[in-house]
Structures are given as C-alpha cells and as structure tokens.
Amino acid sequence: MRGVLVTGGSRGIGRAVAAAFAEGGDRVAIQYADRRSDAEETLRQLPGEGHALLQADLSDPAAAMRLVAEAVTALGVVDVLVNNAAVAPTADTRHPVADTAMADWQRIWRHMVQVNLLGAADLSWAVARHLINRGAGGAIVNIGSRGAFRGEPDFPAYGATKAALHALGQSLSVALAPHGITVTSVAPGFVATERQIAKLSGPEGERLCRESPFGRVGTPAEIAATVHFLASSAATWASGSVVDLNGASYLRP
C-alpha cells in the first residue's frame, strides 16, 4: 500500500486519478485550493480507508513544503506525487497577445507560472527529498498538455507552462533515476471533465469531437489509467517519457 499525493484532486482528471490509485489499494491525499465541497465529494467516493483531504494554495511559495509534510503525516509516507493542479484555460484566463492589456497579461502569466510550473517544481523537490531521505524509490507523474506542442494562441502562458513542466520532468528523470525514482509526464488532449460540459454540449462540441479520428474527446478515466500505470514498477523503463493521450488528434514528430 503506497501513499499518493494528488494535487488538484477536487474534480475532473484529479478526481479520476485519485480514484484509480484508491481502487488499486493505495492511500490518497487530495490537495485542493478552494473547492472544498468538490474535494469532499472526491474523498467520499474513494474506496478504502486512510485517505486525506489537504488544502493548499500552490501559488504560495511556502505551500509545497507544508503540503508534503501534511501528506506524510496523514499517510505515513508519500511514494507517488501526481502534479495535476493547474490554472486552466477559461474565459477569465484568456490572454491572446493582440487584445490583452499589459496588466492582465502580466497577472495571468505570473499566476500560471507560479501554479502550473513553480508549484509543481517545488512539490517535486519536496517529495523527491522525502524519498531520498527514506532511501525509497517512488514516482512523480506530471499532467501536462497537448497544448505544449501544438500551441495555445489564446492561452500562451498555459502552453508555455505545460511545455516547461514536460521539460522539468525529463530533467528530473535523469537526476532521480539513481535514487530509484521515476518521473514521467502525460500530455492529454481535450478531456470531458465537469468543467467542459457546457462547451461540449454547445456548438463547439462537434468540432472538438472531430479533432480525433475516433470522433470523440477523451475521458478522465482514460487519463487516470495511464497515470496509474506510469506510477507502477512495471513502467520504470518509461521514465523520462512524455506520453501523448489525445486520440490521434495531434501527432508530433
């Protein structure tokens, strides 16, 4: 039985990832920022015992050390970190360069960098040091994005931070391999989370489904299944990989 810390676990991909680990017999600590009722629902749905709910604002540079310490206290150990929390593309975070004021541009960029990249980097450091100090192997899995490769013209900070997250994972995979710690990333395409219901049921839904030759978008469970595998001992040789999960909607060289 492993201890697993999943950030951004209140709903969507994070909820599905937490469920996948709990169903596999692991104990899960779910980090949330401000959607406590959703996070409590995730916790309620998890099978097994010993799970925990932890609040942390990952834009705060002090949050990572506190969060990992709290996860260790709640679970006993942390063996797996899933860096899922992110400031996502929404109407409020849209910032195309041609029609975004400098003040808004800077505000959105800095918030996305702080959460999507620096928060994940700090958590990776804290969990890696916890594992090294224990002399234990473990796994870090980053939730990146297809947008890191194909570009995000309306959300350039999002695309840039996800690309940087992939690069961070590859650097850490080399640095941490001698300690028996694997680091991988997944790059999902469009996923049918709760946040996307309105978009999928609206006029844009058909276009989004047509992006994949399967004629649909991905599901949180499909992403979670790959994350769960990448954190297993069977996936050790995948360390350093960035796994595309987009239903052949975007093929990179």
Rank of each mutant, 00 (worst) to 15 (best):
D57R: 14
E49G: 10
S124R: 02
A64T: 10
L5N: 05
D57V: 11
R27W: 01
D60L: 07
A69I: 06
L67C: 06
A91C: 02
W109F: 12
E70T: 07
E70H: 00
V17A: 06
H130F: 01
H95K: 10
H111Y: 01
A103N: 10
V6M: 08
P89M: 04
G25M: 03
G8V: 02
V4C: 07
R44T: 13
A69F: 09
D34F: 08
A63Y: 01
L117A: 05
T73Q: 15
P96I: 07
L54E: 05
A88R: 14
T7R: 02
A62S: 15
D79M: 14
G119K: 00
P89Y: 04
A33I: 05
D79E: 14
A121S: 09
A33S: 13
V68T: 12
R129K: 14
T73K: 15
D34W: 03
G24L: 02
L43T: 02
W109S: 11
A56Q: 10
A85E: 01
G50C: 03
N83R: 11
V72A: 02
G14C: 05
Q106C: 12
V17K: 02
A63R: 01
L75C: 12
A29V: 05
S10M: 08
A16E: 06
L75S: 10
A128Q: 10
T73E: 15
A16H: 03
S124L: 08
